[in-house]
Design a protein around this nucleic acid. Structure first.
Lengths: 162, 162
DNA sequence: CCTTGACCTCAAGTGCACTTGAGATCCTAC
DNA sequence: GTAGGATCTCAAGTGCACTTGAGGTCAAGG
């Protein structure tokens, strides 16, 4: 639509860094881990295909949300790193990502709810509040507490019907 | 209501560890950072007041959500570490926590939405998709990209009306 | 051609969040 | 009163996710 700048489809590492806000050293590190890919010029410099921008953006968001890079890599799954991903490549990956995001969102919502509940009911100064003293409430169920945790984990059993 | 076990109100570090799922070494580390507090027995062993359970649980959830411990500490703000927090202590802290959680949740929702959009519109194989190639869409606005990021940050200006 | 800034590799260093180990003390139960 | 497990301190080590530095190459402008 606006072919004023024709950036011949490949980005230098510096351009990638500017556009994604990720340092060049980090981009090289991601490549070492197999999280992103690049082609090389005759003089051995990296050139990134345009679709890597999305990949890098996803990586940096995921990181901020607390996902370790190993999980990020796994979440990309079979999205190819060199060739431009196909529709179904992205579709599969998106499902995986959304699953992870949803889990995380629900963990947050749960915590938000618990905090609200405690404010709302005015019970905060009382010893009896189950939210303040989760162990008391859970003690009756048995010696397996963990209340606010357990819920934020990424389940390993992905069970993505292949 | 059920005074069968009367655990005289103070927990050992081992009990804390079991109930929260946080290792004893981590609990000592948190104490060193000033994130949790304890009293000592005559023999110099830690004893935790009951309300520390909540604090530790919050810490471990926050960590899983990607909050650095420095932010966690700041989020507790003026909730006292030694005395049992008052209603208004918790109320202030809860507001701060909820603010942070909400920001994070919105970042996730945004990302979820973008992923859905891309699946939904079937544009994934097209070069023109603004979500796939955010820089293209943003190029017209000026050279200040960053699209998916920028949104997950905890803003420093807390502006909690004291 | 030459300069200059972007880029390269590789090794080492950094900061966070812990864990591990050594050597000693505590405390509960027999 | 003593054995054994839980706890203590302090120092050093670990893993992740990078960053920094040294020493050198590449590529676009003058």
């Amino acid at each position: 639509m606006n072919p004023t700048h024709e950036p011949d489809d490949l980005l230098t590492i510096g351009e990638m860094s500017h556009r994604t806000g990720v340092a060049t050293s980090a981009l090289r590190y991601y490549e070492e881990l197999g999280l992103v890919g690049s082609v090389r010029t005759g003089g051995n410099q990296r050139r990134y295909p345009r679709h890597m921008l999305r990949r890098v953006s996803l990586i940096s968001v995921a990181k901020r949300l607390g996902m370790p890079l190993s999980d990020v890599k796994e979440a990309f799954g079979d999205v190819p790193i060199e060739s431009t991903p196909s529709h179904s490549d992205w579709q599969r990956a998106s499902r995986r990502w959304k699953k992870r995001l949803e889990e995380r969102r629900r963990a947050i919502e749960r915590l938000e709810h618990e905090l609200t509940g405690c404010i709302g009911c005015g019970c905060l100064s009382l010893k009896a509040c189950a939210l303040l003293n989760p162990d008391d409430a859970l003690a009756e169920i048995g010696p397996g507490p963990r209340r606010l945790e357990d819920v934020t984990e990424f389940p390993e059993g992905d069970a993505e019907r292949s």
